[in-house]
Simulated scan of single mutants.
Amino acid sequence: MPVSDISPTATFHDLKEASVFITGGGSGIGAALTDGFLGQGAKVAFVGRSDANRFCDEMQEKHGQRPLFIQCDITDIPALKSAINSAATAHGPITTLVNNAANDLRHKASEVTEEFWDKAMAINLKAYFFACQAVEQGMRAAGGGSIINFSSISYMMGNAGYPVYTTANSGINGMTRSLAREFGDGAIRVNALAPGWVLTQKQKEMWATPEDLAAHLARQCLKEHLAPQDIVDGVLFLASKASRMMTGQALVIDGGVVGTG
């Protein structure tokens, strides 16, 4: 099945009118997440560095509801916290947070400077923590919520080519488990989601050579390439009460490349 032909598979009724906040929700997998939550009837706010008003126009035309876009660099923590507060004011306390924004710029260990390290960690780990911190009290007041932290299978595979990124990915799992324990008494669930190689437009343009695609597909148990919708369905499940007793876990959606347990 071509990846573009994959359609939504489930309706999660408890997500209707839910207040959802997504980092990097205007492009790539993030845009698919915004689309997916709007399709469930949720109220979606998202942040991104690039102007996303055209995308918001498309979403309003498609769903009859416009997402709230706040232009923001997530490494600016005060700005990120302000965006979260603005979203809660507009849509009510945030009950689903999706930490999706990341940067997997390729690099070698020998090339890493302190400046590069700090910048990569600010994007790929630090912003995640402070977004979680910023939504905790609102979720407690609302009676609970769900936090979904995007990781990646790259660190599980021991991939070379981006060691600072994989370090942050592994750190996301540790953070997720600790926050699940700390936030659990407020009925706040915290889970990680580790996608495999999802064929977004960026991946197709930058790294998806025919040879690399064939090699990766050979490692998968399921012989189809992953599409953004495969990840959206997993996030919707983690956001909904269908997963109400699932927390501190890492959900892997990769077609069967890595094994867990």
Rank of each mutant, 00 (worst) to 15 (best):
M1I: 15
P2T: 05
V3L: 09
P8C: 11
T11G: 09
H13S: 09
H13W: 11
A18C: 03
V20E: 02
I22E: 00
T23N: 01
G26F: 04
G28R: 06
I29D: 04
A31N: 03
A32R: 02
L33C: 09
G39D: 05
A42Q: 00
G48H: 04
D57R: 11
E58Q: 11
E58R: 13
M59F: 12
M59N: 04
E61D: 06
G64I: 02
G64S: 10
F69M: 07
I74R: 02
T75I: 11
T75H: 07
D76W: 02
D76E: 10
D76Y: 08
I77Q: 00
I77R: 15
L80T: 00
S82I: 12
A83F: 07
A87R: 05
A90T: 13
I94A: 14
T96N: 04
L97H: 03
V98W: 10
A102Q: 08
A102M: 12
D104M: 13
R106T: 15
R106W: 15
K108D: 15
E111A: 12
T113S: 14
E115T: 09
K119E: 10
A120S: 12
K126F: 06
A127C: 13
C132S: 12
Q137T: 07
G138W: 04
A141R: 11
G145M: 07
S152H: 01
Y155D: 02
Y155Q: 09
M156F: 11
N159P: 07
G161W: 04
Y162C: 09
Y165E: 01
Y165N: 00
A168S: 10
G171I: 07
I172S: 03
N173A: 14
T176D: 01
E182W: 11
L193S: 12
P195Y: 02
W197R: 13
V198D: 00
K204I: 15
E205L: 10
A208F: 08
T209H: 09
D212T: 15
A215E: 13
H216N: 14
R219F: 05
K223S: 05
Q229V: 08
D230H: 13
D230Q: 04
D230E: 05
D233Q: 10
G234P: 07
V235T: 10
A239F: 00
A242P: 05
S243Y: 05
M245F: 13
T247G: 04
V252M: 08
G255C: 10
G256T: 05
V258I: 06
V258S: 06
G259A: 15
G259F: 05
G261Y: 06
